[in-house]
């Protein structure tokens, strides 16, 4: 029983972070109908920024969060205007190759600037372990999980309750009709990239608290984030969080109860089943 509790709690908190990573991906996918394959590599960049702020300026990840998130927002807007805007009206293959190009670019830049060395933030403010029932967990992971829920709530509130959020939703529903009511579609797309990268930047900050950093670290999370978005529904923020948690729990439970080597088989099998049975995901709409 103690072991199952440990697996459940670890899976739950890992899932919350998967959820936060997925939110930005889901937002961009939902609004622009475009898959950003470089999403997790932007997270890698945020992890490096966090590490640099910690090692060079002594700024703990908890305090560097707003700085990194703001920086990533700007980077998102910049990426949209410099790169994405030029392929947005193009073929799917152009968009796909474009974001794959970003993957190569970001990983190469990181490798060039910071080498392939592994880095880790040693002894941040939030360090050590905490007991939750019979389970032991790093405090960094707990903070990351709880913060993921708060940030998801905040982004959901912006989307659902503010005029700018409504404009984003209107753009997602019909990008051709949106200008008729005065919405500047270009700006909305840039905003989606900004919010998307700011949220994955926040995930990177929290992850850097307890996870190692190296140029390919994003690849580890990219597939799981894609699965979470497809399960949760494109563009759905609650969907991304719930699906992220589901992925974390399924990964942990199947690894423990069935066989660790097959844990991703179970995750991806579930993904295929959901795509076949409910193509718009748990929380997505048919449109």
């Amino acid at each position: 029983m103690e072991h199952i509790e440990q697996v459940l709690v670890s899976g739950l908190f890992a899932g919350m972070v998967y959820g936060l990573i997925s939110i930005g991906l889901s937002l961009i996918w939902g609004i622009m109908d475009m898959v950003n394959f470089a999403h997790s590599d932007f997270m890698m960049l945020a992890m490096y920024f966090t590490y640099l702020l910690f090692s060079k300026l002594g700024l703990d990840p908890l305090f560097s969060l707003p700085l990194v998130a703001a920086g990533m927002f700007c980077l998102g807007v910049l990426t949209y205007f410099l790169v994405i805007r030029h392929v947005i009206g193009g073929e799917l293959v152009q968009q796909t190759l474009c974001t794959f190009g970003l993957v190569v670019l970001l990983q190469s830049v990181a490798q060039y600037l910071w080498t392939g060395n592994y880095q880790m933030i040693n002894e941040p403010l939030v360090s050590g372990n905490i007991r939750i029932f019979a389970a032991s967990l790093s405090k960094g992971q707990v903070v990351a999980g709880v913060a993921s829920l708060f940030l998801a709530g905040a982004i959901w509130w912006v989307i659902q309750k503010t005029r700018i959020g409504w404009a984003l939703m209107a753009t997602a529903q019909n990008r051709y009709s949106a200008p008729l009511v005065g919405i500047k579609v270009d700006r909305m797309f840039a905003l989606a990239w900004g919010i998307g990268l700011a949220s994955v930047g926040a995930a990177g900050v929290f992850l850097a608290n307890y996870y190692y950093i190296y140029p390919q670290v994003g690849a580890t999370f990219q597939l799981l984030a894609l699965v979470a978005v497809a399960l949760g529904g494109f563009g759905s923020i609650p969907g991304a969080i719930v699906a992220g948690i589901a992925v974390g729990l399924i990964e942990a439970l199947s690894g423990y109860l069935i066989e660790p080597a097959y844990k991703y088989l179970v995750v991806f099998s579930l993904y295929i089943v959901v795509v076949l049975v409910r193509p718009h995901g748990f929380f997505g709409t048919h449109s």
Binding site: Q6, V7, S10, G11, A14, Y18, A219, T220, F221, L224, G248, E251, A252, L253, S254, G255, Y256, E259, P260, A261, K263, Y264
Partner: peptide, 11 residues
């Protein structure tokens, strides 16, 4: 056995 470069090795 485990999948190399897994995101988590908790289980």
């Amino acid at each position: 056995p485990y999948t190399a470069r897994a995101a988590s090795l908790t289980s």
